[in-house]
Design a protein around this nucleic acid. Structure first.
Lengths: 125, 125
DNA sequence: CAGCATCCCGTAAGATACTG
DNA sequence: CAGTATCTTACGGGATGCTG
């Protein structure tokens, strides 16, 4: 198939798998969150909050909900007092991690050159 | 290193390679654009516009600039009348494509289940 | 042709306070 | 503890019109 045809087709977000999928975990914390859960599951809400110390509960909630809605994360509620909720990766979520690995590696390898002299030298806001 | 330490470190966007890198091409058209240029380089501004027919010049410009600023795309201006500008992937940009491939594949494989019955059946706006 | 300038909108994301 | 509610800001993205 012609490149142009293919891309014309994928210009429509609804028909582009990559965009459709990426859009779901390209939010600020999604990938980080996935990797946290990949290495340590299950985790409780508060635990995650403590690790991602800069995330607000609201954002964490929405990020988790988003990931849950696309079946990457599993949310398990325990009817206890005090309440306990545990998050973990779904099988589907687990398969995403290795698919992401090369990209992560690339990012690490190219981080320096991408950021240029930022982050490399003493630059810290 | 402890997972938590690692993630605490990466919570700061500036120290997280993945987020830092991904943030640059997680915009709506970036990946599509990269793949277009991966298959057909160089391309002129107008050519790209025609392929990505839904993109506005402004957004295309900013997307290209963004990709250029991180060294993924190369912009070549020809001092002619009428002006001609050609865009192509940099070597760095080319290495990104294969790193993205597994993710793309994963997206394709999991597209259906992610979107659920949307896009599968007749759903079209 | 290849943009830039400008205005507008929707949504991600942050801060803060409150609750089952 | 695990969120929700509300407000506010920042930015991506789109539309339109203009220019070197």
């Amino acid at each position: 198939m012609e490149v142009k045809e293919k891309l014309k087709k994928y210009s429509d977000a609804e028909h582009c798998p990559v965009r459709n999928v990426i859009s779901h975990f390209s939010s600020k914390w999604s990938i980080l969150l996935l990797h946290i859960l990949a290495e340590e599951s299950p985790m409780r809400f508060g635990e995650i909050s403590r690790v991602l110390e800069d995330i607000s509960p609201k954002v964490l909630t929405s990020t988790l909900k988003n990931l849950e809605s696309v079946g990457l994360v599993c949310r398990k509620v325990y009817a206890e007092v005090p309440p306990r909720v545990e998050y973990s990766l779904t099988p589907s979520g687990r398969t995403l991690i290795p698919a992401l690995a090369p990209l992560v590696q690339w990012s690490i390898d190219n981080f320096a050159s991408i950021v240029g002299n930022r982050g490399q030298s003493g630059k810290r806001s």
